Lab assay of single mutants.
Amino acid sequence: MTEYKLVVVGAGGVGKSALTIQLIQNHFVDEYDPTIEDSYRKQVVIDGETCLLDILDTAGQEEYSAMRDQYMRTGEGFLCVFAINNTKSFEDIHHYREQIKRVKDSEDVPMVLVGNKCDLPSRTVDTKQAQDLARSYGIPFIETSAKTRQGVDDAFYTLVREIRKHKEKMSKDGKKKKKKSKTKCVIM
């Protein structure tokens, strides 16, 4: 069974824990209790493949930012979460993405942009803004509501699919490099 290491990042209060708990335990946590770091595991079937999701729910508070490099190193894919009623959390996505790329030393890291709290009427981040940002990053965008469960499975499952595509691409690139290195030079 394939294991996928997913990391949920975003500013404090955007609903990272609520999304994760909704996926794992099928219930909505409405009281806000700032996370330092929590880890969850769940076995699911995605596109006919049974897999184990190892999900790291991270601290959004700035005082825990020193811990970010460590979990970013171990993560295979990242859910970059903002709240649709919090423009600052949307603007912060850029910083999370840049930090992930720096730590992973790669421009090509599996990510999904997630606009959470889409059940709320007080939207300050337009869907088109988020779609445009995701398009500019070359990553999928999904709106979710941890409260109603809308888009929750889709967000995590899409990230797994992005990781699969990335692994497939990397193995193809690896095979191309191996083929090239088999060419021999004969000096007579």
Rank of each mutant, 00 (worst) to 15 (best):
185 C>K: 15
60 G>L: 03
33 D>M: 08
72 M>C: 08
184 K>V: 00
55 I>N: 08
175 K>E: 07
174 G>M: 14
145 S>V: 08
123 R>S: 14
73 R>Q: 12
157 Y>F: 12
131 Q>C: 08
108 D>M: 04
112 V>Y: 00
58 T>H: 10
26 N>L: 03
171 S>W: 13
63 E>L: 02
51 C>E: 05
126 D>H: 08
68 R>V: 08
111 M>Q: 00
122 S>F: 07
78 F>M: 01
86 N>V: 01
142 I>R: 02
138 G>K: 10
51 C>N: 10
183 T>G: 15
27 H>A: 11
134 A>L: 02
68 R>S: 12
176 K>Q: 14
131 Q>K: 11
186 V>L: 09
25 Q>M: 04
130 A>E: 04
132 D>R: 07
90 F>W: 12
122 S>V: 09
75 G>A: 15
157 Y>I: 15
100 I>T: 03
169 K>T: 06
125 V>C: 12
33 D>V: 10
137 Y>E: 10
112 V>T: 00
176 K>S: 09
119 D>W: 01
44 V>H: 12
161 R>S: 05
183 T>F: 01
15 G>L: 00
108 D>T: 09
49 E>T: 11
29 V>N: 11
79 L>E: 00
22 Q>A: 03
37 E>F: 08
90 F>V: 12
11 A>D: 06
110 P>V: 02
165 K>N: 10
6 L>Q: 00
134 A>G: 03
91 E>H: 12
113 L>R: 00
132 D>K: 07
128 K>F: 11
157 Y>G: 13
186 V>D: 15
111 M>H: 00
35 T>W: 11
158 T>Q: 12
186 V>S: 15
138 G>S: 03
64 Y>T: 14
183 T>V: 03
18 A>M: 06
97 R>A: 15
69 D>M: 02
12 G>L: 04
129 Q>I: 14
81 V>D: 00
116 N>W: 00
65 S>P: 13
16 K>L: 03
111 M>D: 00
63 E>T: 06
124 T>L: 09
63 E>D: 13
160 V>K: 03
164 R>C: 04
110 P>T: 02
113 L>A: 02
22 Q>M: 02
70 Q>L: 05
80 C>T: 02
50 T>P: 10
107 E>R: 05
151 G>Q: 11
53 L>C: 06
41 R>V: 06
63 E>V: 04
175 K>I: 03
95 H>T: 02
44 V>R: 08
45 V>M: 06
104 K>E: 04
23 L>A: 14
31 E>Y: 10
99 Q>P: 01
129 Q>T: 09
66 A>W: 04
161 R>H: 12
24 I>L: 14
113 L>W: 04
110 P>M: 02
66 A>S: 12
94 H>F: 03
144 T>R: 10
182 K>I: 02
121 P>N: 10
41 R>D: 09
184 K>I: 01
157 Y>N: 12
